[in-house]
C-alpha cells in the first residue's frame, strides 16, 4: 500500500515476460511508454471472500487513447472498471488491495475525495439508465452537483453536450419530456452526454453497445473516436471487430489476470499466448 513504487513504474513496460517480446517485434507500438499514462494500476487485487477476482493487475492507461479490455465473461473486466471510479465501494464484500493512481494520486487513499474522483471518470454502462427526470435535467444533474446553477450556463451546456453526441436535433423539441421515452440508442447517447457534462478526463464504457442496434452502435463508436481528441477512453467489449475499429491499445484478461496487451495488430495478428489464440478463434 506504499506510495514508493509510483514513479519508478511509470516508464516500465507492463507484465514482465511479454513486454520484451512486444517492443522487440513492434518497436514503434508501445503506446503507453511514449507519453505519461493517465492511470497507473499497481499490484491491484480484488477479492470476494476466498475468490480472487483481480490478481496483481499492473497496467498503464495511455492518455488520449482508447484502451479496450477484452476477455471471456467473468474475467473481471467490469470489476476493474468499477474500481476505477470506486463504485466498488457499493459492494462491501469486495476487498481491494493495491493502488490506482490518477495524476499521481491514489484513488483508494482513505482521504481521497470520492466526488472529485468520480467526476474525473464518466461511466457508460451496458444498458442505458437515464435518471428519472427530463432529458434536460438528466444533463443538468451533473452540473447541479458541481454547483453550476446559473440558468444560462446550464442551458448552454445542455445544448453543447447534446450536440456533442449528435442528439440535439432529435430531442430539441422535447427537452422537458421524460428521458425514458427516448429509444434505447438515444438513451445511451444521452447517458454519454450526461457524463460529458461533468467534465471528466476519462470515459469508462462497459459493453456500451451491447443493448443497441447496429446503427446506434455505430453512432456510439464514431462518437468515441471523436472523443479521444479530448478524453481518454477505456472500453470493455465482447465484439472483436469493434475492438479492432476502436482500440489504440488492447488488454486481454483471463480469470482476473492480464495475459497480454498491445496494439490491435499485435493482439489480433500476432497473439503470443495460447489462451488469447483460443479466445480469438472461438470469438469471431
Amino acid at each position: 500500500m506504499s506510495n514508493s513504487s509510483t514513479i519508478i513504474d511509470q516508464v516500465q513496460q507492463v507484465n514482465g515476460g511479454e513486454a520484451g517480446a512486444t517492443s522487440g517485434a513492434f518497436p514503434n507500438t508501445s503506446v503507453q511508454t511514449s507519453d505519461s499514462p493517465i492511470l497507473q494500476i499497481r499490484d491491484f487485487n480484488v477479492q470476494a471472500g476466498d475468490t480472487r477476482i483481480l490478481k496483481d493487475i499492473h497496467l498503464d492507461i495511455p492518455k488520449g487513447k482508447i484502451t479496450v479490455l477484452l476477455g471471456p465473461s467473468g474475467c473481471g473486466k467490469t470489476t476493474l472498471l468499477k474500481c476505477l471510479n470506486r463504485l466498488s465501494d457499493l459492494h462491501p464484500s469486495l476487498k481491494v488491495k493495491g493502488q490506482i493512481l490518477i495524476d499521481g494520486e491514489d484513488i483508494f487513499h482513505p482521504t481521497q475525495d470520492l466526488t472529485t474522483i468520480r467526476q474525473k471518470m464518466g461511466l457508460l454502462s451496458q444498458r442505458p439508465f437515464p435518471l428519472p427526470m427530463s432529458i434536460y435535467k438528466n444533463i443538468a444533474y451533473g452540473l447541479k452537483i458541481k454547483g453550476i446553477r446559473d440558468k444560462k450556463v446550464v442551458k448552454e451546456k445542455v445544448e453543447k453536450h447534446l450536440r456533442d453526441v449528435g442528439l440535439w436535433e432529435e430531442v430539441k423539441d422535447r427537452l422537458h419530456g421524460p428521458a425514458a421515452r427516448l429509444s434505447i440508442g438515444q438513451q445511451q447517447r444521452l447517458c454519454l452526454a450526461r457524463g460529458l457534462a461533468v467534465g471528466p478526463e476519462i470515459i469508462l464504457a462497459d459493453e456500451p453497445t451491447s443493448a443497441l442496434d447496429p446503427i446506434s452502435s455505430r453512432k456510439i463508436e464514431e462518437e468515441f473516436l471523436r472523443l479521444k481528441e479530448d478524453y481518454t477512453l477505456i472500453v470493455v467489449t465482447h465484439i472483436l471487430r469493434q475492438a479492432k475499429r476502436l482500440a489504440d491499445h488492447i488488454v486481454f484478461m483471463y480469470f482476473g489476470e492480464i495475459i497480454e496487451q498491445g496494439t490491435p495488430d499485435e493482439i489480433f495478428n500476432h497473439p503470443k499466448s495460447d489462451i488469447l489464440k483460443q479466445y480469438l478463434q472461438s470469438g469471431h
Binding site: 463504485l87 457499493l90 467526476q119 454502462s125 435518471l131 444533474y141 451533473g142 452537483i145 457524463g195
Partner: peptide, 10 residues
C-alpha cells in the same frame, strides 16, 4: 445501475 449512474456523476 441507476444509483451507480448518479454516483458516477459525483
Amino acid at each position: 445501475e441507476l444509483k451507480e449512474a448518479s454516483l458516477s456523476l459525483g
